[in-house]
Computed example of a mutant assay.
Amino acid sequence: MEKNNWQQPLLKRTDQDTESHPAMIDIPKFSTVDLRTVVPLLTDMLVLYSALTPYRSFELHNLFGQLLLQLQNGMRKSSPHARSYILGEKVASYLANHLEQPFDSGEMERELHYHFDYLARCLKQYSGMSPLQYRHHLQIERAKRLLKHSELSLIKIGEQCGFQDNNYFTRLFKRQSSYTPGEYRKQYQVFHVDSS
């Protein structure tokens, strides 16, 4: 059986995005389908299509997107690789929710109830990154948001992103963005608070 590649590469986002990013969806030839959710969607789509207007066209696109998601979810649930995909999502969520604490593989194992090596493989399949790479990506993205939208000091921003060592924060930030945090703030800060 062919192994599905469910890797979810993180998309580059900015606060200047005006249109959605291209997306991919796997449509199975054969899969378990929950008719209780799919049949009402198909019925609603037929009703909209019978008297199509520009407004109803938008609703039809929305329902079609829901149908595709239902088909994809059915494929994931019935796949032998479903557990690794779900665990990849759980590891990604765990890392996002624990950015301020020091990275602790043992704590991750205890909370998610799997060996760290297996969790790391699942995250790699899901995102293309190791847990530390994924954590660093999340930390730098949070730092960018804080640099753009707050007046917090660079040290406070580093701490809120889980960096106890400000020099390490600066080096990692520059490696991933080609700016130091201070340079990034000067370049991209959205507003300035006047203290006078």
Rank of each mutant, 00 (worst) to 15 (best):
A120I: 01
Q139V: 03
I155C: 05
Y55V: 06
I86V: 13
L172F: 03
L35A: 12
F58S: 15
E151C: 07
L60R: 08
F169V: 08
H21Q: 13
E159K: 15
S196W: 04
Q101M: 07
G128R: 04
Q160N: 09
N166I: 15
F163L: 10
K144I: 05
Y85E: 02
K174R: 11
F64H: 05
D117E: 07
V47Y: 11
D194C: 03
G88N: 01
N5F: 00
E109Q: 06
Y49G: 05
Y118I: 03
T14K: 11
Y49E: 03
D165E: 14
T43A: 14
H136N: 15
R13D: 06
L10Q: 10
P9A: 06
E159W: 02
Q72H: 15
Q189K: 15
M1F: 12
G65Q: 05
D17V: 01
F173Y: 04
D194R: 06
E19H: 09
G106C: 01
N167E: 11
L112P: 02
M1C: 09
T18C: 06
Y114V: 02
V47E: 14
S127N: 04
Y184R: 06
A143Y: 01
Q7K: 12
E59R: 11
L87T: 13
K144D: 04
P40F: 05
V33G: 05
I155T: 14
G162V: 04
S150H: 14
P9M: 03
Q101P: 00
I155S: 08
A120N: 06
L87M: 13
T14H: 03
E159T: 11
V33D: 09
Y118Q: 00
Q164F: 11
C122N: 07
N97G: 01
L138F: 03
Q7G: 01
L60T: 09
T43V: 14
H61Q: 05
L10S: 05
E159L: 15
D26L: 14
Y94C: 13
R83S: 10
K77A: 14
Q125M: 10
Q164D: 15
F173I: 09
T14Y: 07
V91F: 12
V39E: 12
D34W: 02
S105K: 04
V193N: 10
N5L: 08
S178M: 12
R83F: 00
R121G: 11
G128N: 05
L154D: 10
E89Y: 15
N166Y: 12
T170I: 09
S196V: 02
N167Q: 15
V91I: 01
P9I: 00
F30K: 13
G182R: 14
Y168N: 14
G182Y: 08
K148P: 06
E107Q: 15
D165V: 05
L112V: 10
F173M: 03
L87V: 05
K186F: 14
Q164V: 07
Y55M: 08
N5I: 04
F191D: 11
